[in-house]
Amino acid sequence: MSKFIALIPAAGSGSRMGHELPKQYLSLNNQPMIYHAINTLWQNRLITRILVILAPGDLEWFKYDWSQFSGKLVALNHGGTTRAESVLNGLIAAKQKDLVQSNDWILVHDAARPCLTSIQLENLITELAGDEVGGLLAVPVADTLKRIDASHRIIQTESRENLWQAQTPQMFRYDLLTQALHNAANANITDDASAVEALGLHPRLVLSDAYNFKVTYPQDLALAELILQERNNL
């Protein structure tokens, strides 16, 4: 029977945050940012294992107490130079260690999306568990989109009809995702769905909301703090 396994690529430096510490370890509500993603995944009854893919020389991870997640959480120092490489390396290492099977569902989630809710995660799994391809959380694009030139002047306004903004988790079977990432090894892909699309397949979108945003800039961290504090006070 297929299992549901989460994978968090956490080998990046988060340079756009302007901080020496990799952004997955920046403090958010008195915990490293990655803690909040792990906690939401850990609470889901269907997810049997959480794989965190760290940079080979990452020692920061071991400065924190992760014991509350014991039984599900496994850290692997197999991160690569890109997100896609980290995911692929993690998948290969997990198979070698017998932590995952070919038909298992893999839910790849960004360490820098700390505001994922249990309801969003449950909806994703429920809607995709019987899907032939898999899919991802996403939201319709609401803002007007402008295409610019090298001088930052508008060339044209792009139609936002049928455009959605991809989020994570992105959920695909182990074999399919591994094949897709292998095939896209030399391509400049920024998410797992892009690699699956390159195989000629069509992942399904599951409606999310704007709160499941990716922390990229310092002001994003402040917003995530407010959202998590409000939830904790409910």
Rank of each mutant, 00 (worst) to 15 (best):
M1N: 07
K3D: 15
F4W: 03
A6Y: 01
A10Y: 05
A11K: 05
A11C: 10
G12V: 09
G14S: 12
S15W: 04
G18H: 00
E20P: 13
L21S: 03
P22N: 02
K23A: 13
Y25F: 15
N29M: 12
N29Q: 14
P32E: 01
M33V: 03
M33G: 06
Y35M: 07
A37R: 05
I38W: 10
N39W: 10
Q43N: 07
Q43S: 05
R45E: 15
I47Q: 04
R49W: 00
R49Q: 04
I53V: 13
I53S: 05
P56K: 03
G57A: 08
D58L: 07
L59K: 14
E60W: 08
S67M: 09
F69P: 01
F69E: 07
G71I: 08
K72P: 12
V74M: 03
H78L: 09
R83T: 15
A84K: 13
A84R: 11
E85H: 08
S86M: 03
V87P: 01
V87M: 02
L88W: 07
L88H: 06
N89Y: 02
A94R: 01
A94D: 04
K97G: 06
S102L: 12
D104H: 05
D104F: 02
D104A: 04
D104G: 05
W105H: 10
H109Q: 14
A111P: 08
R113S: 15
P114C: 02
P114Y: 05
C115A: 15
L116W: 08
I119N: 13
Q120I: 01
Q120N: 06
Q120L: 03
I125D: 02
T126E: 15
E127T: 12
L128M: 07
A129C: 15
E132L: 03
V133Y: 05
V133H: 10
G134R: 00
L137Q: 03
A138S: 13
P140R: 02
V141E: 14
A142H: 09
L145P: 13
L145C: 11
K146P: 09
R147T: 12
I148Q: 14
H152Y: 11
R153W: 07
I154Y: 04
I154E: 09
T157G: 06
L163Q: 09
W164H: 03
A166F: 08
Q167R: 01
Q170H: 00
M171H: 03
F172Y: 00
R173A: 13
R173V: 09
D175N: 14
L176I: 07
L176P: 04
T178R: 15
T178G: 09
A180E: 05
A180C: 11
N183W: 05
N183V: 10
A185P: 07
N186W: 11
A187M: 13
A187N: 14
I189H: 12
T190A: 13
T190Y: 14
A193N: 06
A195W: 08
E197T: 08
A198C: 05
A198V: 03
L199P: 11
G200Y: 04
G200Q: 05
L205D: 14
V206G: 00
S208C: 04
D209T: 06
D209R: 03
A210G: 09
A210K: 14
F213A: 06
T216G: 10
P218L: 00
Q219P: 04
A222C: 11
A222S: 13
A222Y: 10
A224F: 00
L226Q: 15
R231G: 15
